[in-house]
Design a protein around this nucleic acid. Sequence first.
RNA 1: UCCUCGGUAGCUCAAUGGUAGAGCAUUCGGCUGUUAACCGAAGGGUUGCAGGUUCGAGUCCUGCCCGAGGAGCCA
Length: 438
Amino acid sequence: MGTSSPPVVEIRNMSQHIDQEVTVEGWLYNKRESGKILFPIFRDGTGLMQGVVVKSAVPPELFEKARELTQESSLRVTGKVRAEPRAPGGFELGVTGLEVIQLIPADQPYPITPKEHGIEFLMDHRHLWLRSSHQRAILGVRHQIIRACRDFFDDRGFVLVDTPILTPSACEGTTTLFEVDYFGQKAYLAQSGQLYNEAAAMSVGKTYCFGPTFRAEKSKTRRHLMEFWMIEPEVAFAELDDVMQLAEGLVSSVVARVLEKCRPELGTLGRDVSKLERCMPPFPRISYDEAIKILKEKGSEIEWGGDFGGTDETLLAENFDRPVMVHRYPSQVKAFYMKPDPKRPELALCVDVLAPEGYGEIIGGSERLADYDLLVKRMEESKLPREAFEWYLDLRRYGSVPHGGFGMGIERVVAWVCGLEHVRETIPFPRMLYRLTP
RNA sequence: UCCUCGGUAGCUCAAUGGUAGAGCAUUCGGCUGUUAACCGAAGGGUUGCAGGUUCGAGUCCUGCCCGAGGAGCCA
């Protein structure tokens, strides 16, 4: 456009540039025309803005160029911003210059129209679907949620310690892992950073890791992905109550951050914000025993000793208007590294946080088993290969202390906060059973 | 892995066993304030694949492929 072109302004800041000449760099979102006047709608990644091109007011070449614009063609457009109550957002761009960077041919149009599409088609075009308003809003909320998590831990003196993704063996020994060839040796994609976190906590006191985790379970539900992101804190000298308080603090601060920073996104998504505004501490804390009692009253088939199914989690969450923390599950349904309750050894000192509105478990955590002999016994009961865990046992040989932590699945939190039907929209490129592309 | 549902135009969907259609998108024409703009016209099909039943199959039967929802398991 040359040196004389007006400054580039992001659409989200456009209200500060009323009556000024600006440049917008972006794409054509949609277009409406009515003979001698046309309304292109531009998008630049920060918002949508309506333009106006009046045939009698611009050179014929400009009108023709604007008329031929196709959906998602890339462009630089200049013009004067003006307040206009009839335009979406309250202002519009009177177009005076248009540089088309790439014109999408009309006979091979952009596949995703502003009309409705099926999920298979949209997932096949996920790389393009990300441009739509809903998906853009979700990406923004996800970003703020991740920032809020990091800020929460950073502000409390936690040290980020990255844990490996390629691991020599199962962490918990339960779920199915993705196997990879590691120069002729079998290796597995990490399903949790927790065991390594425990080592890091003994170094820095308070630590967290945040990265992708992998589960090769053939799960096919709206709550499951094969590859998902988890943030996992681990704290030396923390007991179960400390773990619960930390979880409550994290979840409430994430919600508060989204309410503070993502109002436009929540509006785009049509989220009922009042349901989020209630999610402030204290969260209700109930024991597994109490949860079983509630579920039986509600007609669940569940028996003491079993883990909750998705329906049970939903039934339970219906009783509360904010996340609920369920603690002290039977050890038999939980991982080997959880400390038994000294008062009732058949229970584990663990906690699950269940999100409201049927979004299920978003956090699972526990106080860890710090005693060497007990840990060895639990490992034998779980039939875990001793050799692979010798380094982990070292943590109990050399200065073992009470400690605990939890893992929070980012995608389930995003799905809940955004009010989505399915976690597949919470991550840019979901990895699901029977879908590895794009 | 199991259960349920689905696959028809680029997209979203119709079509008693009897000539395969509509809306949107695309092309052409009309329209100076539109809000998923509207009005008129045109082009567009190996009905997921392979067999079978039938005078005749998008429709019924068998097998397979692909997808969706759920269960189990989990965050």
